[in-house]
Amino acid sequence: MSNFVEMPIAKAINAGLRQAMARDPKVLLFGEDIAELGGVFRVTEGILNQFGPKRIMNSPIAESGIVGTAIGLAMRGYRPVVEIQFDGFIFPAFDQITTQLAKMQNRSEGFHQMPVVIRVPFGGGIGAVEHHSESPEAYFAHTAGLRVVSPSNPNDAYWMIQQAIASNDPVMFFEPKRRYWQKGPVNLDTAPMPLHAARVLREGTSATIACYGPMVTVALQAAEIAAEEGISLEVIDIRSISPIDFTTIVDSVKKTGRLVVASEASNFVSVAGEIAARVAEQAFYHLEAPVLRVGGFDVPYPPAKLEELFLPDADRILEAVDRILAY
């Protein structure tokens, strides 16, 4: 009998971090304001009390320094898990992530593996000021050597953070910040699936919606509404942005013949674009309509009073579904 506990995503990540820290003394946490405060989203709340100041530390407000020293610690045999406070603050560390962290294993011909996890609260919908609502995952998915994942629910959050920490490669762990307090059951006994597998969340026959992170909730809403109108949508949470489990997506498209890819990120040169290209290559004769992308507009993330118009909602997904069903 599995041991299920109801908890929100933020608490599930917290619990997963504690599991990983208890299992391996080389797992270290550091980042801005994560110790006493527990981070601005309280994801690491209470960990200082349980593990003490040698396992969880506040860093100077210097993102390149956080990632650069994490690389050095990984060379020393540690498994650093660092927090970048907000998506829009990751760019001072972009150089260390893309030119150093991602390439170190290849550069050193395997002598230096980089078991570093970079936790990034991402996405919008929280009414924040500029730089607090972005979806920068494509920059990292484009960089060879990184793994990029995003959980959409508490059970995945609990297990995926542990799987990311166990990986000997650097993992960008994008946390859907507007879903932090969304609750769900967590199975404390058994991991649901490998880190990089996609999951069919809802089966359907009319069209497939592929999505990840904060958009999963929106896609499920859209499927619910569509069902009332007699349209059967299959919803896939891709979970892993790099690598992408194309097999699950392509198998679904072979069944439904239609695909919408939904994310908060701007569409131009996006993860959604990559999925569309792959599906065109691998399921061309099964497609009844072009693959459509439903995403943010190609503008800087707007002021909060406009974000409802920027972010795709269930109606925007359904509008795209209507268009592909019209073929």
Partner: peptide
């Protein structure tokens, strides 16, 4: 920074 992390 790698050196500093290593020294940490």
């Amino acid at each position: 920074l790698h050196a500093t992390g290593y020294a940490m």
